[in-house]
Design a protein around this nucleic acid. Structure first.
Length: 407
RNA sequence: CGGGGCAUAGCGAAGUGGCAUCGCGCACGGUUCGGGACCGUGAGAUCCUGGGUUCAAAUCCCAGUGCCCCGACCA
């Protein structure tokens, strides 16, 4: 991609109404554009990052047997009334009427519609277990959208649902998902802390994946030796006793919840009549679990924990481009490098603008934050200057060596 | 939903009753060219919306809307 052709451009000053670092940098770099409180549009650079995140998640979900599907965002009232959530979730679910006064909602999660859909396909113990997931836009009427991409009213979410014949089977799969979640976050360069959190009605705890960050809205108590934490919402003497944790050994931290996994039991399958026939011929409700990752929040979190005063420092796995190539009055030679790297399948963002000063180009490279920066200039002669975004020092390399560095 | 703050050009800001300004960005011309360089010219405004006061309102008053922060809330 040539920057001279790019749809967006960078801006020097972030809009005054953004205070969160993630929003400031992502807007300045042209990754996202704000529409309303808690609603952002993903511009080409941001979309590329999002696609990389999606693909990491897809790989890990597929690896544990998840089957990707796509539910509808548009929701009919009946299925939600069956569990009582049409009423109880009124504050969070966007609900409205059509011209004929019929009521509808927008999906903020999909337990009900998934359980309803599964009735068509799950009838026997032979149909279990199953796991399906989607990556889809969710809508939530947040009373207070805030912190840039971290709490939105419209956001992309990966939601996985699993269906089981027994509690033991669910428990086993649940741990598989927890491991997969750990890999997803690790591949994006995030250190997550698995955290005991409120479990809702079915199980004692749910598990959250928390990333330490001052901007986070969660308070967790970290047990360093265990590498686990407990969320403030369940931080009680009884819980600590149950976990066998000593209050004095816990450290209070502020953190961002990037993922949450829940054992649902039969909370949704029973009211929706999702049953199966077991080996003995008995009819039983299917046991379910759901697992969520907020994609926009994840992207915002990476920016929060990986930036400096000049801009974003993307991990290679989700950077919009691997290489940021810039020409300082050497467009002919830079063009060759661009063509060569592109031919080898390396993603290059090429700053070919000849009406910009060197300073602006360097500033943009740092702001956009691709992992590798290449400079072609008078100074570099026949060689190319190469520098990692995360490091200070650069060095000169011969053109033929270049590609090897990135493969 | 409670408390606080803000709203003027694409972005950042000044203007507290009397001709709407400045910087960035944008266009054109020129000088530059390794860290947002410079000179000149130009385009760009529903001063958040509606009402009121006044000879005169971006400015004062009333109502509303939007955005940010704190809190409540967060399947």
């Amino acid at each position: 991609m040539k920057i001279s052709q790019l749809f967006t451009k960078t801006i020097k000053e972030a809009p005054a109404d953004e205070t969160a670092v993630n929003a400031k940098l992502l807007i300045r770099g042209g990754f996202v554009s704000k529409v309303m409180a808690g609603v952002y549009e993903y511009m080409p650079l941001g979309f590329r990052v999002m696609e990389k995140i999606n693909n990491i998640i897809r790989e890990e979900m597929n690896a544990i047997g998840g089957q990707e599907l796509q539910m509808s965002v548009f929701q009919n009232k009946d299925v939600w009334s069956a569990t009582g959530r049409w009423q109880s979730a009124k504050d969070v679910m966007y609900q409205f009427k059509d011209a004929a006064d019929k009521e509808y909602g927008l999906g903020f999660t999909h337990e009900e519609p998934l359980a309803a859909a599964a009735r068509h396909y799950i009838n026997s113990y032979k149909d279990l277990p199953r796991a399906v997931y989607q990556i889809q836009t969710k809508f939530r009427n947040e009373p207070r959208a805030k912190s840039g991409l971290l709490r939105g009213r419209e956001f992309l979410m990966k939601d996985l649902y699993s269906f089981h014949a027994s509690q033991e089977d669910l428990d086993q799969y649940y741990e598989k998902v927890a491991s997969a979640y750990g890999r997803v976050f690790e591949r994006m360069g995030l250190k997550t802390i698995r955290t005991f959190a409120s479990g809702g009605s079915f199980s004692k705890f749910s598990d959250e994946f928390q990333v330490e960050a001052d901007i986070g809205e969660d308070i967790i108590y970290l047990n360093k030796s265990a590498g686990r934490a407990v969320n403030k919402e369940v931080y009680t003497d009884e819980v600590l006793a149950e976990l066998g944790w000593d209050k004095k050994s816990l450290a209070e931290r502020t953190s961002i919840e990037v993922g949450n996994i829940f054992k649902l039991g039969t909370k949704f399958s029973e009211p929706l009549g999702l049953k199966f026939t077991d080996e003995k011929g008995d009819s039983k409700p299917v046991i379910m679990a759901s697992y969520g990752i907020g994609l926009g929040r994840l992207m915002g979190t990476v920016v929060e924990v990986s930036h400096d005063d000049r801009g974003i420092i993307w991990p290679e796995s989700i950077a919009p481009f691997k290489v940021h190539l810039m020409s300082l009055s050497r467009n002919e030679q830079a063009e060759e490098v661009y063509q060569e790297l592109t031919r080898q399948g390396i993603e290059v963002l090429y700053d070919d603008r000849d009406d910009k000063t060197a300073g602006e180009k360097f500033a943009d490279a740092d702001l956009i934050g691709c992992p590798w920066r290449l400079v072609v200039s008078e100074k570099t002669g026949d060689k190319i200057e190469i520098k990692r975004r995360s490091e200070k020092d650069s060095r000169l390399v011969e053109v033929p060596e270049l590609a090897k560095l990135f493969l």
